[in-house]
Simulated scan of single mutants.
Amino acid sequence: MSQRPAHFARTDEDGYLPTEYAQSHWGEDHLNGPAVVGLAAYILETSYGLPDFLPARLTVDLFKAARGVPTTTKTALVRDGRRVRNSECELVQDGVTVARATLVQYRLAEAPRGAEWVRPSDFARPSELDESRGINIGSDGRGWTSSIADHQNTARKRCFNRTIDVVDGQGNTAFVRAVMAAEGTSLVSNLGTAGVGYINGDLTVALSRLPDDEWIGVEADSHWADNGISVGSATLFDRRGAFGTGLVTAVSNPAAQIDFTDDPFPTRTR
């Protein structure tokens, strides 16, 4: 094992063992979202990524709660086109697929003529960054802190992430960092006055380019909820500005609602 924290240790060519860093707030034997989506992104980029293509969209369907058990992967290149490449990956535990990811890559090309509408993309980073934590969180009217519990309110939220490695001994690429940070879309859109009571069943990340920084900002854009179903979207930022979008759908999980004001695992992500 390396000295850097990581979510998984590699056991063989297609096998991975979750570490303590992959554990989630949802349960002692549940894996957190960034660990699961990060592993899927790592597998697909390692297996099928090409330097002339941008990983423009990743969708991860989280079929079943991933747990702290040996995890294997299955991959396939669905289409190897001149301008578009499509691939997919399954994460398997105890013979059951717990997550399936699809990746769309587009060949880099010259931009078309003209100009288009662009959303204003100001993102104010924390003035005093807590380098000791992987996440800093802010909300309108409260500002930035390093405690999620400070932001259990109804204001618009944002976070500023630096992810740990997905696989031990393998530093995260810019793509993997973007995917793991984008899983924070669920946090910034679903965190309310009583904590987080929705568990996301998917994540879609859409990128116009790769991020420049290790630190990535995620700012909520929308949150709609009714009858125990929620939809949240967020914009991703680095020091150059906005570069992508996160989207999650989620289902109510009040029996296991996470109230961060009574947090037994303050250093874990969800």
Rank of each mutant, 00 (worst) to 15 (best):
M1N: 08
R10S: 09
D12Q: 07
E13S: 12
D14M: 09
G15I: 01
L17N: 08
L17A: 13
P18V: 08
Y21P: 00
A22I: 01
Q23G: 12
H25V: 02
V37G: 01
A40P: 05
Y42I: 00
I43V: 15
L44H: 01
T46L: 10
L50P: 00
P55R: 01
A56P: 06
L58G: 10
T59C: 09
V60K: 05
V60Y: 03
R67D: 01
V69W: 04
V69N: 00
P70H: 10
K74D: 11
T75I: 11
A76M: 07
V78C: 04
R82T: 14
R85P: 06
E88T: 10
C89Q: 01
L91F: 09
V92Y: 03
Q93V: 06
V96W: 00
V96N: 09
V96S: 09
A101M: 00
T102A: 13
G114D: 03
W117C: 08
P126T: 06
L129V: 14
D130M: 06
D130K: 10
G141R: 07
T145D: 03
S147M: 06
D150I: 03
D150W: 01
C159P: 00
V167C: 09
V167H: 05
V167Y: 04
D168Y: 09
A174M: 08
V179R: 00
A181L: 01
E183P: 00
E183I: 00
L187T: 08
V188Q: 07
L191Q: 04
T193R: 12
V196Q: 01
V196F: 02
Y198R: 02
I199D: 10
T204N: 05
S208L: 14
P211T: 10
D212L: 15
S222E: 12
H223Q: 13
H223A: 14
I229M: 14
S233E: 15
A234D: 00
R240D: 14
F243S: 03
V248Y: 04
T249N: 15
A250N: 13
V251E: 10
Q257A: 15
I258A: 03
D259R: 14
D259P: 08
F260M: 05
F260S: 02
T269I: 07
R270V: 11
